[in-house]
């Protein structure tokens, strides 16, 4: 049942991108959507199960991230265009209190999208984060993103 729902979602996305191109692209899209759904379910299993409210919540969360992504890109832009490139890269380890794998994955992606930090590894609850400067890790260690994700995805967990 989940495979059918995932295939339908993937196929709908394919149709949005290729509408009007005829039958063959449609058939190809159906086969590919089915394959992608099967591979995703094989590797992720039930880890990505989302309730309807959570899907909406994640979308709202993704939109709320945009104001963080733009300064992040701007900061990198200023840094790489500066003469001296004042960076002092560090790798920090950070233990998250989030319990669901999906919430942890969302946190890792959020860290990658925020200024000066890039999630390198995620093993259990331990995140390895590469920072261009140590101070860039402050929003992470202050748990701002984590609290938002906990509210969205872990109320019922």
């Amino acid at each position: 049942m989940r495979w059918i729902r995932l295939t339908a979602a993937g196929f709908l996305f394919w149709l949005i991108l290729t509408a009007g191109l005829g039958w063959w692209p449609g058939l190809l899209g159906l086969v590919l959507a089915g394959l992608v759904a099967a591979i995703s379910l094989h590797y992720l299993g039930s880890q990505t199960r989302l309730e309807t409210g959570e899907t909406l919540g994640l979308l709202v969360y993704a939109l709320a991230l945009i104001p963080m992504v733009i300064p992040a890109a701007w900061q990198v832009l200023r840094l790489v265009l500066s003469r001296e490139m004042a960076i002092a890269p560090e790798v920090i380890k950070y233990r998250t209190s989030l319990r669901r794998p999906l919430a942890r994955a969302a946190l890792a992606n959020s860290i990658t999208l925020t200024p000066g930090t890039h999630c390198v590894d995620l093993e259990g609850d331990l995140l390895t984060i590469h920072c261009l400067k140590a101070r860039f890790a402050t929003p992470i260690t202050d748990r701002i993103l984590e609290r938002r994700l906990a509210r969205l995805l872990e109320r019922t967990a």
Partner: peptide, 26 residues
């Protein structure tokens, strides 16, 4: 800027900062 970062930043991990932040926004 992402491309310049790719060329100027000192290592693989730093270069990823440039490409994962500047390219999607671009």
């Amino acid at each position: 800027a992402g491309t310049i970062g790719l060329l100027r930043l000192p290592d693989f991990y730093c270069r990823l900062h440039a490409t994962t932040k500047c390219d999607p926004i671009g």
